[in-house]
Simulated assay, not measured.
Amino acid sequence: MNIYLWQHKTAVALFALAVWAAGQGRLAARSPAESADAEDRRLARRGVDLMMDGDLDGATSVFRQIQGQDPHSPIGYLLEAEALWWKIYYSTANLLDADVFDVAALAATPHDAHFNDLVAVAIERSEAGLRARDDVPRNLLYEGMAYALRARLEGLRGRDLPTGRAGKKMRALLLSSVKMDPSLTDAYLGLGVYNYLMGTLPLTEKIFQYLVALPPGSRASGLEQLRRAAQEGELTCGEAKFYLAKDLSRTSEGAYAKSLTLFGELARDYPNNPLWPLVAASLKYSMGSKPESDALFRAVLERTAAERSDAERGVHRAARAALLAQHPDEKFGE
């Protein structure tokens, strides 16, 4: 063999071996905690997709799997609480109201106690991680998201003082998280919701803001942060798009076409959830397309007639109520 050719092949082989060894070293350097967190988040993304697609029981099974394999992590408890919040929302809220908070028809549900227990565990696990100095930015994020869920339920029940306290705590935690690690764009969901709500408070309610010493918000910043979470969020992109679409559907915004586009994207990404076409039907009505709205409501009513899930039961009830309001002489299944 030509000596120069042999030397060249040997050099290439040694270089390839060095690259492989370096890669193996990086893999070995990854701590067990980092590997567990990566697997937790992989499963979490699958569970969140199921949740946004209307399969809350399937999502809960995934979140409990995370709890079983990594019981010290807050994420499994946090996301199971979020799935429970959706159950509560579907069963008690006015799904067609542009507001997602303070729209519940019941003071409590059988899910509330377990929801509060899960939020408390998520907060405790996050604080334990912070005391151990274990991935501080992410534990701040998870604790902030837990307080966001607490604020959501209190808001749904119309309890302003606990809502304000939880929202204030959430804001501080999420700001600290994203300041330490700007890549944690899931923080912008909670920050966007807070900024938008505080920035659009009626003058009569600003007195409460001052009494509780809530930091001010900004409507424009809130919408921009929700857009960022919808585009870049790891676990919150679908939910951020939902809140953004809801905000744009408010009468004060009047951005019905933009809202409709976002709900269309949610229907494309999560096609099994009947909530998206339900809200699209309501938006069509607000835009003056009443025949199209009526047809959509009827299609949703038929699609959810079996009421096989929490999402289908809640959406079926809302679609029937909307049709009865427009056609009081029709029975619509009863």
Rank of each mutant, 00 (worst) to 15 (best):
H316P: 01
P182N: 03
V62P: 06
R317G: 04
P277M: 01
A240P: 03
I66L: 04
C237V: 01
T261M: 12
T92V: 04
S249F: 00
D294C: 01
R64P: 05
V12H: 09
D97L: 05
D294E: 13
L96H: 00
F297K: 05
H327L: 07
Q209M: 10
A122C: 11
F208H: 06
A93D: 12
V48G: 02
V300P: 11
L324Q: 14
R320N: 05
L283A: 04
Q209H: 00
D186P: 01
S309W: 10
F115S: 11
A281I: 11
E127Q: 15
S61E: 14
R42P: 04
R131Q: 14
E307M: 13
Q326W: 06
H72M: 05
R313W: 06
Q209G: 01
L175F: 02
N116C: 03
P202V: 01
T10Y: 11
P328L: 02
T92H: 02
D134K: 15
S35Q: 14
F208R: 12
K290D: 06
F101N: 09
T109E: 08
P274M: 02
Y196V: 02
R45E: 14
R171H: 07
V279L: 12
L244Q: 01
R46T: 07
T261F: 12
S126A: 15
A148W: 06
E154A: 14
A120C: 06
A318S: 15
W86G: 06
E80N: 11
L5G: 09
A220P: 00
E253G: 00
R317V: 00
A120N: 14
P110S: 08
S221L: 14
G217S: 03
H72Y: 02
L226Q: 01
A245E: 09
G76P: 10
E124F: 05
V212K: 02
H327S: 08
V279Y: 15
Y210G: 09
Y4E: 12
L56S: 11
E302F: 04
A187E: 03
A28E: 10
A311N: 07
A187H: 07
A83Q: 12
V103E: 08
Y256F: 15
T236C: 01
Q69K: 14
P71A: 07
G144I: 04
M180D: 09
L266W: 06
G58H: 09
V279Q: 09
G158Q: 02
S31Y: 05
H114A: 13
E307I: 00
L84T: 13
L191K: 00
S176G: 10
Y77I: 02
